[in-house]
Design a protein around this nucleic acid. Structure first.
Lengths: 222, 222
DNA sequence: AAGAGAATTTTTGTATACAAGAGAGTTGGC
DNA sequence: GCCAACTCTCTTGTATACAAAAATTCTCTT
């Protein structure tokens, strides 16, 4: 991919869609957008196709590009898959972990703890993401790591919301510690189940989460 | 997606890449290809980007599109993930299976058996693919089913090769029967482990498979 | 003669121009 | 007065034209 402009536009649009600037079902007008970005329709269309490929848009032939936000059912399903992938990463990592991996993971966990103590949810979110990415890499399966990152990215805004649920950050941190301990012992089964739970809880607690989601939706729709 | 021409071209090119008409590292010339397909470069480029999005090409900015075949390591990793996803589908399906799902799966298994008895490897391949697709759907998780199908599609040519390994078809059929039996009993753990094994064996027996692969590669390179 | 640098050529990336399908609005018929 | 068909417009899909960056070749110098 990655011709300069098309890729920049993709990134910007992706952000706008993910942060909810565009609502589900919105139609993206090529001409309007190309004027907005001061480019021709050619690179803009390339951006739209990339977004469609990653599932953020639906391209209906001769009809246009429509924003496609996952509904609650689809979100639960995505978290279900994410839990499985993370569990798999953990299971493999427990067997294949290198010393460098462990050091990096511990460093990341420390950074998480620091963010937790200062109460900086954004920083915690970033460090948490880093912790999980390191774990994916530690699985020793590059393809799995890529797939996990892809889905992580897709679920990004929803995982972020989770952190605003009362007490979730503390619980998340405790889970990280248990995961690290089990990893160090090489206990694949525990790592796998801890990680599955660590993610699955986000799907299961969706009532809380959707309350937040709906309210932020309403706020921006008004 | 799916503007008429770009999508047709994508399909054709995908076939050419998957069947090995293009080798790893081959550079695809936009002008040459657009002349070959009697279209302009615009829809052709769209096709290239779709192929890049699904991992069949690498688009290096200002350098062109390069065919990207998975190496043996990546293939093993992909099968490892496929096994996990199939196992997950099976586990969920054991819990969520409807009567219609079971009937459809049984029908598909019967069709597999018929193909096996007539020794028609192509038919067996098709019916086998159908059996697995039905299983994905039976998981009750549409997102998981889509992801599984995506990866199945990507591994298609390599799974197909497996069937030419001596005795693999018979073994595969027996595994299907055991999976069906466990599904009917609702034994999620057995279904999951049977399916994991059913796929993982393909990754593990990669020495046999690669012997075939290399020979067919050599044959067409000459 | 070999290597570095400049000019040329080739190829990708972007803009614009053109074609054609979908949708809305209008008009004619019943 | 309502429905249907036709036209007109608007938007997408495709072709072509243009710009800019690599790659290649040629030349000049050492």
């Amino acid at each position: 991919m990655a011709q300069r402009r098309a890729d920049n536009i993709r990134e910007t649009l992706e952000h706008l869609i993910i942060t909810g600037e565009f609502s589900d079902g919105d139609r993206l007008d090529e001409t309007r957008l190309s004027e907005h970005f001061s480019v021709s329709r050619t690179p803009l269309r390339e951006a739209l196709q990339m977004l469609a490929a990653s599932g953020l848009l639906e391209l209906r032939p001769r009809r246009g590009a429509y924003v496609r936000h996952p509904g609650i059912i689809e979100l639960v399903q995505m978290f279900e898959v994410m839990a499985e992938l993370e569990g798999m990463c953990g299971r493999l990592a427990a067997r294949r972990l290198t010393d460098e991996d462990l050091i990096a993971l511990k460093g990341s966990a420390t950074a998480c703890e620091k963010a937790l103590q200062t109460g900086d949810a954004d920083a915690y979110y970033r460090e948490n993401e880093q912790f999980h990415s390191l774990l994916y890499a530690a699985s020793g399966n590059g393809f799995l790591a890529e797939e996990a990152r892809r889905l992580q990215r897709r679920l990004q805004p929803f995982r972020r919301m989770q952190l605003h649920v009362r007490g979730r950050m503390q619980q998340s941190m405790a889970e990280h510690q248990r995961i690290l301990a089990a990893l160090e012992k090489g206990d694949a089964a525990v790592v796998e189940s801890e990680l599955k739970g660590h993610i699955a809880v986000q799907g299961e607690r969706f009532n809380d989460l959707m309350a937040h989601y709906d309210r932020s939706n309403k706020r921006r729709t008004q």
